[in-house]
Amino acid sequence: MVRVIQQTIFIFLLILFLAALPSVIGVNPEEKTLTWDFSKLPQVYGDFIKEISQGSLGTYQLGYQEREISEDIGDNFNTSLLIMLVGVNIGVILSLLFGIFISRFRITRFVNTLLNLFATIPDFIIIILSLILAVKIYKMTGIRIISLRPDAGALNIWFPMVLVGIAPTLYLFKLVAVKYYQISGEDYIRTAVAKGMRLNYINFQHVFKNIEPFIIAELTKVVSLAIGNMFIIEYLLNVSGITKFIFLSSEIQPIAVGLFSMLLISLITYFSVRLVLYLFKRGFLYE
């Protein structure tokens, strides 16, 4: 419990520090040197706390327009949350499926090699390549598979979901593959084989149960990977999600609000994956 409180405090401090960073760092044009101006900090934080305590989230700049954050945050939050939830959950399920349960078949081995190959390519390159591919497909066939207009509905949102899902899938798949191979050399697997249990049964009852703690331990890393990619994807694909507040401004108000909503989104995503794993365990595993 102490650790959870400690972590919460650290994350809060980290976010507040990050949000104030643009107003602290600057350049001195005459001497051409970096300057750290910490004297602004109390004022910046004072303004932030005053704004929050008045019950408003403050304003942000959209072009030349100054808009209330609280008016726009609902829709943007939902969009980002939807993308993250679908992307990360798909990633976890796919990596488990290909990593453990069907990895031994000849056809899936091909998929595994493909996944391994993709895992060596950095995520942002995959994102750019897929964009190039989408443009090419549109030029060649005239079929519009993605749209960069924020009001295009499903066309605007399905592609980000897939792209957000790529990084968690590849990362977890690599991890699961290594762990699966390690665990299958353990003595309790030999016992299970000697008892004449079926391979599927061993995969469910012995292997999955022992891989699950590693997956849960890596889950924060997976979610943070997905969040990192989400920033880039929303920026490149013009999705009006929560990152709009963060990239369009350099004031503390929108950045801090944006980062805190990101924190909330990743918490919800984390618990949704935990729920999926729990349901899977209740449904398929003999407890």
């Binding site: 650290f10 980290l14 970096l34 943070s224 963060i246």
Partner: peptide, 30 residues
């Protein structure tokens, strides 16, 4: 441990983005 955990939540490029957003442009610095 709690610093490590909370640090792993924030994407690193975001920290760098905020760090360099105000100093990287317009070749003022060497």
């Amino acid at each position: 441990e709690s610093i490590e955990n909370s640090w792993s939540y924030v994407p690193l490029f975001l920290i760098l983005y905020f760090c360099f957003n105000s100093i990287n442009f317009g070749n003022i610095l060497e």
